[in-house]
């Protein structure tokens, strides 16, 4: 376990150092790339709470990512451009949606849960596509990036630092929840539901809370993503994005604290490097993903740090 902690610290420092070095070398683009890693990692941290700890394989988390994005886009269109309130609105709206979706979906389990979360995400996807007020399929551009007190968010580095700090906050929240009573109950619900029931604890409220918290974190990431690309579109809500979030988690190592960060870094780098090498990049991306599932169980962190404590 010691070893995994050192790897986590190294990963966190690496993500911080990368954009600083890039700026020193005059390569501003890599700051943007690092920001993308941080934001996707935060979205995956959210999903990891439900999926990694709770074993709730949500195939519809793109819905919450997109809700966060649209919260940022719509508020910005109403001249509401301060980041912290936007994050709160994004998290609240996604939390309410998640409470509703979760209340219905958590009655099911296994594949049914995977598919019903997908169904809800598809509903929201089609709704947004055919809703003309905020651009529909064309999406909604943000005129300028939203603002944060005392920080010039238009510059790549300050914006990266905002995302980085939020990612660290998300990771801390994840670690705190995991190691507390709530996390213990949640993991018990995943591993042995009957035993939990025998102790007189109902798994449903625990799972619902995890699902809602998970959605709220992912929504904040969605709001940051909208600011990063200065654009929101229904493709943020597509089932491909739900799939990519799952891919990120598995790539990094399911249920691992820093799995989402390792996975997001790997995924973004592969997409970027393969994409500039060949137009058939998706073929090779597929091969790498396949190889990871078949031969590197435990993901990147599992590969370096060895078996998980509670795998």
């Amino acid at each position: 376990m010691e070893r995994e902690r050192w790897i986590n610290i190294a990963l966190a420092l690496l993500l911080l150092a990368a954009p600083l070095l890039a700026l020193a070398a005059g390569e501003a683009f890599y700051v943007t790339l690092a920001t993308r890693v941080a934001v996707l990692a935060l979205a995956a941290v959210g999903l990891n709470l439900a999926l990694g700890l709770g074993g709730l394989v949500s195939f519809g988390h793109a819905a919450f990512f997109g809700i966060g994005g649209y919260a940022a886009g719509i508020l910005a269109a109403q001249e509401m451009t301060a980041m912290p309130p936007i994050w709160i609105v994004a998290a609240l709206v996604a939390g309410i949606m998640a409470a509703f979706i979760g209340a219905v979906s958590l009655r099911t389990s296994g594949v049914y849960f995977i598919m019903i979360t997908l169904a809800f995400a598809q509903m929201i996807y089609y709704f947004v596509i055919s809703w003309p007020a905020y651009g529909g399929e064309d999406g909604l551009p943000l005129a300028v990036r939203n603002q944060f007190p005392f920080v010039n968010t238009l510059k790549p580095l300050p914006f990266f630092l905002i995302c980085y700090v939020l990612l660290l906050a998300g990771l801390l929240l994840f670690a705190w929840l995991r190691d507390g009573r709530f996390g213990a109950a949640l993991q018990a619900a995943r591993q042995n539901e009957t035993r939990l029931a025998a102790l007189g604890v109902s798994p449903f409220p625990i799972r619902l809370t995890a699902f809602v918290l998970s959605a709220m974190i992912t929504a904040v990431a969605g709001a940051l993503y909208a600011d990063l690309t200065r654009f929101v579109s229904p493709s943020m809500l597509s089932w491909h994005l739900s799939g990519e979030l799952i891919v990120i988690i598995i790539l990094g190592g399911t249920g691992r604290l820093f799995g989402p960060l390792a996975g997001a870094a790997l995924f973004v780098l592969m997409e970027f490097l393969l994409g500039s090498l060949t137009e058939r990049w998706q073929f090779f991306l597929g091969l790498v993903l396949l190889g990871t599932v078949l031969f590197a169980k435990g993901g990147l962190i599992g590969l370096i740090a060895g078996k998980a404590r509670n795998g």
């Binding site: 394989v57 995977i114 799939g243 598995i250 399911t254 073929f283 790498v288 599932v293």
Partner: peptide
């Protein structure tokens, strides 16, 4: 199911 989703997602690509 998680691994199955990922592996068959890769197969789609």
């Amino acid at each position: 199911h998680l691994d199955q989703v990922l592996a068959t997602f890769a197969l789609i690509l």
